[in-house]
């Protein structure tokens, strides 16, 4: 029954798509059948290795760097009220800049290579992580802080066993926002200036009017988004299992 409810609507939607476009004469909306048939030719192993893998690696590198920088700075800033008050307006401003406009700026500095794309992703992703980390570190429960102090929990132990876990839920929330920004930036930076990558490939198909291929590209990108968010959720369950349990317990 659950499986049925879980699959019913997607099946219906795909069926509608299939039949509504079957025999479509519309150049830009080819039949779903055509799209699916063209997929194996387009997304060969070579192409996955040449275009999808580099994109993913850049995404991973940028996101990881942003996590490290964001959390490190967040811990430094969050625990110091005066520093926080000083830098917060600047951070709020930097966070509010729509990340894609940083692409042209970073192209100035870093050209159009891999470094530029990773840098673009870092520069867009770091803000939600950083600001959430600051907020999470600031809001560590006072009783926990005093417990830690009275048992002599200091230095790295304090960081690993008190500050980071306590700020964890906030940091993860920031990281989730950052991940969707990262995907946007991965695609945009490749659309702007690249000779490989999934964003580049899709735009190439569009420009050369390879429409069914373009559709497959969009579907692959969509699947990538779904896959990444699924992986993120797995990681979140592993890291924040305690938090979800706590929330459920509090709700009663």
């Amino acid at each position: 029954m659950r499986v049925l409810k879980w699959t019913a609507l997607p099946v219906v939607l795909i069926a509608i798509w299939w039949f509504a476009t079957a025999g479509s004469e519309e150049f830009y909306v080819p039949p779903l059948q055509t799209i699916i048939e063209s997929a194996p030719d387009v997304w060969t192993l070579d192409r996955l290795r040449a275009d999808v893998l580099p994109s993913l690696l850049r995404l991973l590198a940028g996101f990881t760097l942003a996590l490290i920088i964001g959390i490190a700075l967040g811990v430094l800033i969050g625990g110091r009220p005066r520093v926080r008050a000083t830098v917060e307006p600047v951070l709020e401003f930097l966070r509010a800049i729509p990340p894609p406009v940083l692409v042209p700026v970073i192209m100035l500095f870093a050209g159009i290579g891999d470094g530029m794309k990773v840098l673009v992703i870092v520069s867009g992703c770091v803000w939600p992580i950083l600001l959430n980390a600051v907020e999470g570190v600031r809001a560590v429960d006072g009783v926990l802080t005093e417990t830690a102090r009275s048992y002599g929990l200091t230095g790295p132990a304090r960081l690993w066993r008190l500050t980071l876990p306590a700020a964890g839920p906030q940091i993860v929330a920031g990281a989730r926002q950052a991940l969707s920004v990262a995907i946007i930036l991965m695609v945009i930076s490749e659309m702007f200036a690249a000779s490989s990558g999934i964003g580049f490939t899709i735009v190439e198909f569009q420009r050369s009017f390879a429409i069914p291929e373009m559709w497959t590209g969009i579907i692959v990108l969509g699947l990538l988004g779904v896959l990444l968010s699924g992986l993120f959720r797995l990681a979140e369950t592993a890291i924040l299992g305690w938090y979800h349990g706590l929330r459920r317990a509090q709700k009663g």
Binding site: L144, E146, S150, G168, L246
Partner: peptide, 27 residues
């Protein structure tokens, strides 16, 4: 050692009971 009034908030919610008791001993 201090035992606070706010028992709900003085235990580390991300650690199991044994780890909570063990933490100061590691320290």
């Amino acid at each position: 050692a201090v035992v606070f009034q706010e028992y709900g908030r003085s235990l580390f919610p991300w650690m199991r009971v044994a780890a909570n008791v063990e933490l100061p001993l590691r320290q």
